[in-house]
Design a protein around this nucleic acid. Structure first.
Length: 425
DNA sequence: TCTGGGGTCCTAGGACCC
DNA sequence: TCTGGGGTCCTAGGACCC
């Protein structure tokens, strides 16, 4: 059996751990730049605030109903996630972390349904006590069915946060109740297509033949189809190293029309990519730099910079990545100041491989040894004094491209100066 | 006025090989 | 007049996930 653990309204729950006064108040968390609503408490969902709505469109609704608003605080969420996952790992021989707030657990050979239920209820209590984060569990024979079960666990109070689909009878009943659009792997496009030909529920979908699914939805559709019928197709393998790493941001206000400021931003994105590669013990063979104007503004001139660069030898070197990113940007920059307002930019590194398996280049022009010892010195200083203590000059200090985050909470768990204080009168 | 950020997998089609 | 058959590799774009 496989269990899927899902943290309820995760970002909101993280904020509430340090704001217990908001336990029954509607809350939302906004995306970077305070752009869109990306997490909602149950009360906020009930007010009709939809996932992904631009903040300005619901600002009035939020003010009128006393909804608490938070800018996203990924340092806090990342740390809370690590705590939850760390406790979960003690409850299974195999934990597969799927996202910041979800994980699959292997429950094979860990007892019959009754025992699994008791075990899970116990775990839910312990996680809540240990971290303050409420979770839900779905247990079934396949991952897709476990995801479905977790939605039932969340929806019906009677399950007390744990729903198990252990018999064929239960599976069929659940499939008949389950909207095809809510199935894991069936997105907006495909569900619309399926509904237009009368496939409304997961049950309707599994009634179709394998050949039909194969021809209409390709092999990924067949995997989902098989999983819903109880056949395991999506493996629980550990996550391999990332194949691409992206750092990107949208810019607040109108955007950026100045090359120097955009350079600074892109240099910092490249620096982040270097750090992420090193964390993964990876190097990259290629990089893409992109920058584009707002796609919502038909009245302004638009531009779309999108350029690749290929490295002679795969690298994760800070200076090499920063200089490559900036050179690409300079080369493809078309805007005279004032012509184009770039709203978003980013750096993607790809064609990655392990840093211990780098293929050299006979015609390499760089002294790699010298670079490596300098990189080690920089990493050493930054490890002790904080990321970016030593930086490439073009990264700058102004952060003129900095994000808007008006409603951000403190880094309660990761910065000693921001630790929670309790005043006793 | 204001619209997130990070990933994966699959397929079609073009370029190339013998 | 008539123009083969079998492959691989790469990329862009589309679908999905959180």
């Amino acid at each position: 059996m496989i269990a899927l653990v899902d943290c309820n309204n995760f970002f909101v729950s993280c904020e509430r751990v340090f704001r217990p006064d908001l336990r029954n108040t509607p809350c939302v968390v906004l995306s970077n730049n305070d752009g869109c609503v990306i997490a909602r408490s149950n009360e906020a969902k009930m007010l009709g605030i939809k996932m992904g709505t631009p903040f300005y469109q619901v600002k009035k609704l939020i003010e009128d109903n006393g909804v608490a608003v938070f800018s996203s605080n990924y340092v806090l969420y990342g740390d809370m996630s690590r705590r939850v996952m760390s406790i979960l790992s003690g409850y299974t021989p195999k934990l597969d972390i799927y996202s910041i707030d979800e994980a699959f657990m292997d429950f094979t050979g860990m007892g019959d349904s009754e025992e699994l239920l008791a075990y899970s209820h116990n775990m839910v209590k312990f996680i809540t006590k240990g971290t303050g984060i409420p979770i839900s569990l779905g247990i079934a024979k396949t991952k897709t069915l476990a995801k479905m079960a977790s939605k039932f666990a969340k929806k019906y109070k009677g399950y007390h946060s744990v729903c198990i689909i252990d018999t064929d009878e239960k599976r069929i009943k659940a499939l008949k109740l389950f909207d095809i659009a809510d199935v894991w792997g069936i997105g907006r496009r495909i569900s619309a297509r399926l509904k237009s030909i009368g496939v409304e529920t997961a049950w309707d979908f599994v009634q179709k033949s394998e050949a039909w699914v194969r021809s209409e939805l390709t092999v990924t559709g067949v995997r989902t189809w098989k999983e819903l019928r109880g056949e395991n197709c999506i493996s629980l393998d550990e996550l391999p190293n990332k194949k691409s790493i992206c750092t990107s941001r949208s810019f607040s206000d109108g955007g950026i029309d100045n090359l120097a400021i955009l350079e600074e931003a892109v240099a910092n994105f490249a620096s982040q990519c270097s750090r992420k590669l090193k964390e993964d013990r990876s190097v990259c063979g290629a990089m893409t730099v992109f920058a584009y104007t707002s796609r919502f503004r038909d009245d302004l001139p638009s531009d779309y910079i999108h350029e690749n660069i290929y490295f002679q030898v795969p690298t994760n070197d800070l200076m090499e990545l920063v200089s490559a990113a900036v050179s690409v940007l300079r080369r493809s920059w078309k805007g005279e100041s004032g012509n184009y307002f770039y709203k978003k930019a980013g750096v993607i590194v790809w064609d990655t491989c392990s840093d211990s398996a780098v293929q050299g280049n006979l015609f390499d022009t760089v002294d790699r040894n010298k670079r490596a010892s300098l990189a080690r010195a920089i990493e050493d200083i930054n490890r002790r004094n904080g990321f970016n203590t030593v930086r490439v000059a073009v990264q700058g200090y102004d952060m003129k491209w900095k994000l808007k985050n008006e409603y951000i909470s403190k880094r309660f768990t990761t910065n000693i100066d921001e630790i929670i204080q309790i005043h006793l009168d």
